[in-house]
Amino acid sequence: MIEQLAGSWNYIIVIILMMTGLFMVIARANLVKKMIGLSIFQTSVFIFYISLGKMAGGTAPILDGNPDTLYSNPLPHVLILTAIVVGVATTALGLALILRINEAFGSVEEDEIIAAKASQSLARPKRPTSEAAE
Protein backbone atom coordinates (compact mmCIF):
# COMPACT_ATOMS: atom_id res chain seq x y z
CA MET A 1 0.00 0.00 0.00
CA ILE A 2 2.69 2.39 1.09
CA GLU A 3 4.77 1.40 -1.88
CA GLN A 4 1.88 1.97 -4.18
CA LEU A 5 1.35 5.44 -2.76
CA ALA A 6 5.04 6.20 -2.89
CA GLY A 7 5.12 5.11 -6.53
CA SER A 8 2.49 7.64 -7.46
CA TRP A 9 3.46 10.42 -5.10
CA ASN A 10 3.29 12.95 -7.92
CA TYR A 11 -0.43 12.23 -8.39
CA ILE A 12 -1.03 12.52 -4.68
CA ILE A 13 0.52 15.96 -4.71
CA VAL A 14 -1.59 16.86 -7.71
CA ILE A 15 -4.72 15.78 -5.90
CA ILE A 16 -3.79 17.68 -2.73
CA LEU A 17 -3.11 20.83 -4.71
CA MET A 18 -6.26 20.41 -6.74
CA MET A 19 -8.46 20.03 -3.69
CA THR A 20 -6.75 22.93 -1.94
CA GLY A 21 -7.36 25.17 -4.94
CA LEU A 22 -10.91 24.12 -5.47
CA PHE A 23 -11.69 24.52 -1.79
CA MET A 24 -10.37 28.07 -1.88
CA VAL A 25 -12.42 28.89 -4.95
CA ILE A 26 -15.58 27.63 -3.33
CA ALA A 27 -15.16 28.50 0.30
CA ARG A 28 -13.32 31.83 0.37
CA ALA A 29 -15.42 34.95 0.28
CA ASN A 30 -12.46 37.13 -0.58
CA LEU A 31 -12.28 37.59 -4.33
CA VAL A 32 -8.49 37.75 -4.41
CA LYS A 33 -8.21 34.53 -2.43
CA LYS A 34 -10.62 32.93 -4.85
CA MET A 35 -8.29 33.96 -7.65
CA ILE A 36 -5.29 32.47 -5.82
CA GLY A 37 -7.25 29.28 -5.33
CA LEU A 38 -8.02 29.18 -9.01
CA SER A 39 -4.34 29.55 -9.83
CA ILE A 40 -3.39 26.71 -7.51
CA PHE A 41 -6.11 24.57 -9.03
CA GLN A 42 -4.89 25.24 -12.55
CA THR A 43 -1.27 24.70 -11.58
CA SER A 44 -2.10 21.29 -10.17
CA VAL A 45 -3.44 20.36 -13.59
CA PHE A 46 -0.22 21.58 -15.19
CA ILE A 47 1.79 19.34 -12.91
CA PHE A 48 -0.53 16.48 -13.69
CA TYR A 49 0.10 16.86 -17.43
CA ILE A 50 3.82 17.24 -17.10
CA SER A 51 4.19 14.22 -14.86
CA LEU A 52 2.19 12.29 -17.44
CA GLY A 53 4.84 13.03 -20.04
CA LYS A 54 7.82 12.17 -17.85
CA MET A 55 9.46 8.86 -18.60
CA ALA A 56 11.44 7.30 -15.76
CA GLY A 57 15.02 8.00 -16.66
CA GLY A 58 14.02 9.91 -19.77
CA THR A 59 15.90 12.97 -20.90
CA ALA A 60 14.92 16.11 -22.79
CA PRO A 61 13.56 15.20 -26.18
CA ILE A 62 16.45 16.50 -28.26
CA LEU A 63 17.68 13.96 -30.78
CA ASP A 64 21.23 12.91 -30.09
CA GLY A 65 21.48 10.16 -32.67
CA ASN A 66 21.70 7.38 -30.09
CA PRO A 67 18.78 4.96 -30.57
CA ASP A 68 18.95 3.77 -26.94
CA THR A 69 18.29 7.18 -25.39
CA LEU A 70 15.02 7.40 -23.49
CA TYR A 71 13.10 10.62 -24.15
CA SER A 72 10.31 12.19 -22.18
CA ASN A 73 7.13 12.96 -24.07
CA PRO A 74 7.39 16.60 -25.18
CA LEU A 75 3.76 17.02 -26.14
CA PRO A 76 2.36 17.63 -22.62
CA HIS A 77 4.97 20.35 -22.12
CA VAL A 78 3.81 22.12 -25.24
CA LEU A 79 0.22 21.79 -24.21
CA ILE A 80 0.95 23.11 -20.77
CA LEU A 81 2.84 26.04 -22.18
CA THR A 82 -0.39 27.03 -23.88
CA ALA A 83 -2.38 26.27 -20.75
CA ILE A 84 -0.03 28.45 -18.69
CA VAL A 85 -0.61 31.34 -21.06
CA VAL A 86 -4.32 30.83 -20.71
CA GLY A 87 -3.91 30.67 -16.94
CA VAL A 88 -1.95 33.92 -16.89
CA ALA A 89 -4.62 35.59 -18.97
CA THR A 90 -7.32 34.29 -16.66
CA THR A 91 -5.52 35.50 -13.56
CA ALA A 92 -4.78 38.88 -15.09
CA LEU A 93 -8.35 39.37 -16.18
CA GLY A 94 -9.65 38.22 -12.81
CA LEU A 95 -7.38 40.61 -10.92
CA ALA A 96 -8.33 43.46 -13.24
CA LEU A 97 -11.97 42.77 -12.55
CA ILE A 98 -11.27 42.68 -8.82
CA LEU A 99 -9.67 46.11 -9.04
CA ARG A 100 -12.73 47.47 -10.78
CA ILE A 101 -15.02 45.75 -8.30
CA ASN A 102 -13.09 47.24 -5.43
CA GLU A 103 -13.46 50.63 -7.06
CA ALA A 104 -17.19 50.24 -7.62
CA PHE A 105 -18.21 48.52 -4.39
CA GLY A 106 -15.44 49.53 -2.04
CA SER A 107 -14.78 45.93 -1.07
CA VAL A 108 -13.42 42.65 -2.31
CA GLU A 109 -15.36 40.57 0.20
CA GLU A 110 -18.23 38.76 -1.41
CA ASP A 111 -20.73 39.19 1.41
CA GLU A 112 -20.08 42.92 1.58
CA ILE A 113 -20.53 43.20 -2.16
CA ILE A 114 -23.83 41.38 -1.98
CA ALA A 115 -24.95 43.74 0.74
CA ALA A 116 -23.85 46.73 -1.34
CA LYS A 117 -25.61 45.37 -4.40
CA ALA A 118 -28.87 45.24 -2.57
CA SER A 119 -28.66 48.85 -1.51
CA GLN A 120 -28.19 50.59 -4.81
CA SER A 121 -26.29 50.28 -8.01
CA LEU A 122 -23.69 52.65 -9.24
CA ALA A 123 -25.29 54.28 -12.21
CA ARG A 124 -23.14 56.25 -14.55
CA PRO A 125 -25.47 56.70 -17.47
CA LYS A 126 -24.42 58.61 -20.53
CA ARG A 127 -27.84 59.99 -21.23
CA PRO A 128 -29.13 62.75 -19.04
CA THR A 129 -32.64 61.29 -18.80
CA SER A 130 -31.46 57.90 -17.71
CA GLU A 131 -31.56 56.64 -14.23
CA ALA A 132 -30.93 53.06 -13.37
CA ALA A 133 -33.82 51.34 -11.76
CA GLU A 134 -33.38 49.76 -8.36
Binding site: R100, I101, F105, L122, S130
Partner: peptide, 10 residues
Amino acid sequence: TDRRALVAGY
Protein backbone atom coordinates in the same frame (compact mmCIF):
# COMPACT_ATOMS: atom_id res chain seq x y z
CA THR B 1 -24.48 51.37 -16.67
CA ASP B 2 -24.65 48.87 -13.85
CA ARG B 3 -21.75 47.96 -11.58
CA ARG B 4 -23.19 44.52 -10.92
CA ALA B 5 -21.89 43.58 -14.36
CA LEU B 6 -18.41 43.40 -12.81
CA VAL B 7 -19.42 40.82 -10.26
CA ALA B 8 -21.33 38.87 -12.89
CA GLY B 9 -18.28 38.89 -15.11
CA TYR B 10 -16.02 37.81 -12.25
